[in-house]
Write a protein that binds this DNA or RNA. Structure first.
Length: 375
DNA sequence: CGCTTAAACAAGTTAACGCT
DNA sequence: AGCGTTAACTTGTTTAAGCG
């Protein structure tokens, strides 16, 4: 029977929570104003199935309040992250010597899509549609995952992001490194504990990148000139101030499932020239076959397996030479290549089988000649 | 349009070095 | 020797774009 005493909304809520608590073990029961904090802690310790069970026992109001807290926290992390710094998702109270982990992502089993406005990820145990409770995105919406992902990407592309500043934790100290891609070259600076210094480095690297992208000269020429011009402009020294270094990449997906990179070279003096020479040699070897975006089958439409194999042998030898000349063990690098090749082999063989099947279906006139064009 | 890759981006790992 | 620090890789993820 209902009490004769008039109850405030909060008293009502409290009684509701208490009824729900009957289904929950004593040590997990939730009461009073510490509800969200305790829930957050508990949920982080539970497995996914237990978490689901736990959440099913909560009231709508409890769930909403919890979600608001969680989303607000996630939004904060994401906001910082998208402002340009990679912010660790670790707890503030974690061991200062611990490395920080990346935020969970789709390929690691993320089961919901990001909020398109604040890019927060809701917990997998919570309903995707509850994203509407996010304080950053007050509009309730039914989530169409495809549209949603597209919208979020547009949003991010529209934002001006400070890219390339990597934040790391070394035994309690935060350090920053700046990385920047300029065409096939990946520039990096030394580590610094100062965020301001890192931002300054990022500006320099971004300046180099812009100059590389704007120039019409040959890749190596514009890279060399961009570094020189930007350093002249800023008054910084490549080696002394930035420890500026770079690696260059060439595609080798068909053979090893990924790009090949040169060893790391200092981006100044003779080392810069050695690095550019290494890249030139790799590039020349790679240019023997088509370089554009294509899958294994498309590549086989342009070159025979024999041609591709020959091209790979040349590229491989050049790659090993470059690493050996840079002071690395040829055997060790070769072993790594072998390992990558072995991983990629089934995929390559499957493509060759598919190609043979398709090749057999083509009219005889199209079977006779291999396209030799390399663009 | 869906699939695939190269390019770009970001973070993890290892090992060497210097300091106490 | 043990520990902190960081250079030098190494690997995973996302984005942009080509192709059937």
């Amino acid at each position: 029977m209902a009490s004769a005493q008039p109850q405030t909304p909060s008293a009502n809520r409290h009684q509701h929570v208490s009824r729900r608590n009957k289904n929950i073990p004593q040590h997990l029961r939730l009461t009073g104003r510490s509800l969200e904090e305790r829930l957050r802690g508990l949920l982080s310790r539970l497995g996914s199935e237990q978490r689901r069970q736990m959440l099913s026992k909560l009231t709508q109001a409890q769930r909403q309040r919890l979600e608001q807290r969680l989303l607000a926290k996630q939004c904060e992390i994401q906001r910082k992250s998208w402002q340009g710094f990679s912010v660790a998702a670790c707890d503030e109270g974690a061991d200062p010597g611990m490395r920080c982990d990346r935020l969970p992502s789709a390929r690691q089993g993320r089961s919901c899509e990001p909020c398109p406005d604040c890019r927060a990820w809701c917990l997998s145990a919570l309903s995707v549609q509850q994203v509407a409770a996010c304080p950053q995105c007050p509009k309730p919406r039914k989530l169409d995952t495809r549209k949603l992902l597209k919208a979020s990407l547009v949003q991010v592309r529209g934002q001006k992001r400070k890219q390339g500043v990597c934040k790391r934790k070394f035994a309690g100290h935060i350090s920053y490194e700046v990385l920047c891609r300029a065409g096939p070259f990946c520039l990096s600076t030394k580590w610094t504990r100062s965020r301001e210094v890192a931002e300054q480095y990022a500006q320099v690297l971004n300046g180099i990148r812009q100059r590389v992208l704007q120039s019409d000269a040959a890749e190596e020429v514009r890279f060399r000139e961009a570094i020189a011009e930007e350093l002249r402009h800023t008054g910084l020294r490549a080696r002394e101030d930035l420890s500026l270094a770079f690696v260059a990449h060439v595609g080798a997906r068909y053979w090893v499932g990924r790009t090949l990179e040169t060893p790391r070279f200092a981006a100044s003096g003779a080392d810069l020239e050695r690095g550019l020479m290494a890249y030139r040699r790799l590039r020349e070897a790679r240019m023997a076959v088509f370089e554009g975006a294509c899958n294994e089958l498309s590549l086989l439409m342009k070159h025979s397996p024999g041609e591709l194999s020959e091209a790979w042998q040349r590229l491989r030898v050049v790659y090993l030479d470059i690493w050996e000349q840079a002071g690395h063990s040829r055997e060790r690098v070769a072993r790594r290549l072998d390992c990558l090749e072995a991983k990629q082999r089934p995929r390559r063989l499957q493509a060759e089988q598919r190609w043979r099947a398709r090749h057999a279906e083509l009219p005889a006139s199209r079977n006779l000649v291999w396209p030799t064009q390399v663009s």
